[in-house]
């Protein structure tokens, strides 16, 4: 339980807009242990998404260090295995049905086999969409799409899931259900979770609550 899955030290990120410098992250420190869930709240524009992208290794910090399970580089392919990401806007591939979207996470890493197919079906069943496996994302509601995205994030049995306002586009009840699902599945599979959210009630359900304010993380 004490193994460090994610470590950030003094992470800084500055954007230039015109000739104005915008220091979004001013030295963020963060430790996430295996199986631990952490919530990050903050005002809109406070840099939550920016931080999450750095934590995902999609972008590099201007200063500071990041380590994933002790390694300083996610590596493109390693990222797909180590991390699952859930976004506010689902980002399902419209040409694929729910099952194919879930399988896509595995396909990118290599050939898929019967076991992978079975896992995709099991995950869809776990998020309550066994009946909808053959449906395109356009045939699913917002909540259902986000559940597919959750299943996709879990497909490769990652050590860590990063979720950026996963309920931002959902109504309250649907959002609650998705959060329950996400937390439940992460706990069940001992997957660490960093959950960015506006919703205080959702934040309360994680092991640890942090707030991003003035470019640094503080206890909330």
């Amino acid at each position: 339980m004490n193994e460090a899955i994610l470590t950030a030290r003094g992470v800084r990120k500055t954007f230039m807009s015109g000739d104005r410098r915008l220091e979004v992250l001013a030295g963020v420190d963060l430790d996430v242990a295996a199986g631990e869930s952490v919530s990050i709240r903050g005002e809109s524009g406070s840099g939550k998404s920016t931080l999450l992208q750095l934590l995902a290794g999609l972008d590099a910090p201007d200063a500071g260090t990041l380590a994933w399970a002790g390694e300083s580089d996610t590596g493109t392919a390693r990222r797909g295995r180590f991390l699952g990401i859930v976004f506010q806007s689902f980002y399902l591939i419209p040409e694929l049905n729910a099952r194919e979207n879930v399988l896509m996470a595995r396909r990118i890493l290599g050939p898929i086999d019967a076991a992978a197919r079975k896992r995709a079906d099991d995950l869809l069943a776990k998020v309550g969409l066994a009946e909808r496996a053959k449906h395109l994302s356009s045939q699913l509601s917002g909540g259902e799409r986000q559940r597919v995205a959750v299943a996709r994030a879990l497909m490769n049995s990652p050590r860590l899931i990063l979720a950026d306002e996963p309920t931002g586009n959902l109504d309250e009840r649907t959002g609650d259900a998705v959060i329950e699902l996400l937390l439940g599945l992460c706990a069940e599979t001992q997957t660490a979770l960093v959950l960015v959210t506006h919703n205080a009630a959702h934040a309360q359900k994680t092991h640890r609550q942090l707030v991003l304010r003035s470019g640094i993380l503080v206890h909330g």
Binding site: L58, T76, A77, R78, R79, I85, M104, I108, L109
Partner: peptide
């Protein structure tokens, strides 16, 4: 998204 999933 494909990039985030590990596509090169």
């Amino acid at each position: 998204l494909l990039g985030a999933l590990g596509a090169r």
